[in-house]
Design a protein around this nucleic acid. Sequence first.
DNA 1: GTGAACAACATTGTTTACAATAATGCTTGC
DNA 2: GCAAGCATTATTGTAAACAATGTTGTTCAC
Lengths: 226, 226
Amino acid sequence: MAQEAVSEKAGAPVSDADRVADRLRQAIVAGEFAPRQRLIESDLIEMFGASRGAVRSALAVLAVEGLVERIRNRGARVRAVDLEEALEIVEIRAALESLCARRAAERVDEEGASRLRGIAEVMRRAVGEHDAEGYSEANRALHQAVLDISGARVAPDIVSRLRAQNVRYRIRLAMQPHRPAESLPEHLEIVEAICAQDPGRAAEAMQAHLRSVHRATKEYFTEARG
Amino acid sequence: MAQEAVSEKAGAPVSDADRVADRLRQAIVAGEFAPRQRLIESDLIEMFGASRGAVRSALAVLAVEGLVERIRNRGARVRAVDLEEALEIVEIRAALESLCARRAAERVDEEGASRLRGIAEVMRRAVGEHDAEGYSEANRALHQAVLDISGARVAPDIVSRLRAQNVRYRIRLAMQPHRPAESLPEHLEIVEAICAQDPGRAAEAMQAHLRSVHRATKEYFTEARG
DNA sequence: GTGAACAACATTGTTTACAATAATGCTTGC
DNA sequence: GCAAGCATTATTGTAAACAATGTTGTTCAC
């Protein structure tokens, strides 16, 4: 009997539908499709060289993930995330990622610690050189590393999906001139706490960091936009 | 332009694929399909009177939700949830539901309070009459009420999906003779804290309750099964 | 009797064509 | 000039056929 655990996350795409879903997800997260933009099936077929059924399954999947919305007989479009929802997502991430940070501190080994320290070094350099793009990428890498090191199986999936939903906000956040310098010490504290194998401190550090993200997001969108 | 917000959750099913997904999800959660049971497309077509494409999209959706797993050219089957994962799910629910309990305490109105008190009354009666089935249903209703009253939009969706995944464990838990009497005071504390509009107390009460669920789940499956 | 090669079957993956629905633009009457 | 009704077009929803793959059972050599 085939007893090997088959994860639909980890493994290679299983069908054309999965490939289309992956590429379309990436495109939406990267901002290649604007919020509320219509996603015409025939366009996607041509764009991805896939069949109708594959595209439709992919759209169904992305609808569940909250990246697109579908209306009967009117097709699919990129779902827009409003401020209220973006803030709630940050709150949820705070709860889940602090849980993962705690577990990461409990389980971290030398390999994980050096991975974290490496990312911390990249962050310090990026702040020094005012490299917003590099800092943003290191930020993503750090959060992902914590999820990986935690060894959790469910929470990382959920967090990944949530991140995909408010990545558009975060990108802008990291592009704020003062923001990297502001969040750097928070990130360093997370790394130190996990490397020190202090679960409580790691959880608190992650929560504090995401409280800061929450506040910054709120301020940016209530001040700059009204 | 059509500006109305269309939620794929709240609204009626949008296509045959959604209808199939809903019914299949319900059947899996209700235990009509056993874990690891194969889900043959032709069977589902006959069972639900839907087309091939609808069934395949539904399977893709349920795979994302974690209820089924698919292997290329070998089809889909009901995914089995092991103890480790069930425990992690309870941990995540603790984090998310305590967050919702906090918000519920902040926002609760008279209607919500009486809804909670009504459920509490049903729970007391069920324990008195040793009505395990009734208690289990009231338990579900209470957790759902907290999510509803919280007014949150994202967390309830996630929690619902997580509950769907470990409902098989929870059912057995509520059927343990001593379990309802054990969890009743925890549930009553949640209700009281929210009705008293005490956010911190509500969050702590929910967390304490799910810690208890976590411990009970662990004990049940390590003692009874080995 | 056992194991390997092979053939028949079951099932899934993909493509195509057809039907139904909503959006769009045009005509016509006023 | 404008609005209502109608025809057209664009797009999605559904169904059926075809191809590819994995599984199972059988045969045959040893």
